[in-house]
Amino acid sequence: MVPILVVVLAVSVGTFMLFAVDARARSEVADWLSRNGFQLLEIEARAFKKGPFTFTGSPNQHVFRIEARDSAGGIVKGWARYGDWVFGWMSDEVEVRWDDA
């Protein structure tokens, strides 16, 4: 009976961590955009198609496809990467690359 409880607890904690890290990554990207004069309109996590971050990232980083409104009211699209190469989500690093116009 005890091993089943340990497995259930481990799965529960793991699931919680996945959701918590994803929420933090989305929040940090939105904060970065806000500090730089943008309003986040849409954010989509990408696990496979990572745009310009496809071959330059690590599994510790989160990549998002983003759409934002700039200070002039225009709509811009691009890619955002959260976390650094080694420490991933334990870093607050955000890098954004905008699509070519």
Rank of each mutant, 00 (worst) to 15 (best):
L18T: 02
A30M: 04
G88C: 06
K49R: 11
M90N: 11
V76Y: 13
A101R: 10
G88A: 04
V86S: 10
Q61L: 07
E95N: 09
K50C: 00
S91Q: 11
L5V: 05
E28V: 10
L5I: 07
H62V: 01
I75C: 06
L40F: 10
V6S: 07
V76N: 11
F55S: 06
F53C: 03
G37L: 15
W98M: 06
K50S: 00
D99R: 14
R35C: 04
A25H: 11
E28I: 09
W98D: 04
A30K: 09
L9V: 10
S12N: 03
V86M: 14
N36V: 04
Y82K: 13
A23M: 13
F19Q: 08
L40N: 08
F48N: 02
A23F: 13
P3T: 05
P3V: 04
V11H: 02
R97L: 09
W79N: 00
G78D: 12
G14T: 05
R24K: 14
S27R: 13
D31G: 12
D99E: 15
V7G: 01
G14N: 10
A68Y: 08
D92N: 15
Q61W: 12
E42D: 13
Q61I: 05
V8W: 13
E95M: 05
A30T: 10
V86P: 01
V7Q: 04
H62N: 06
I66P: 01
I75G: 04
G78N: 14
G83Q: 04
Q39C: 02
V94M: 05
K77G: 05
R46W: 00
A20S: 05
L18Y: 12
R46Q: 14
F48I: 08
V76E: 14
K77Q: 14
V21E: 14
I66T: 02
A68N: 07
A23Y: 15
I4M: 10
T56D: 12
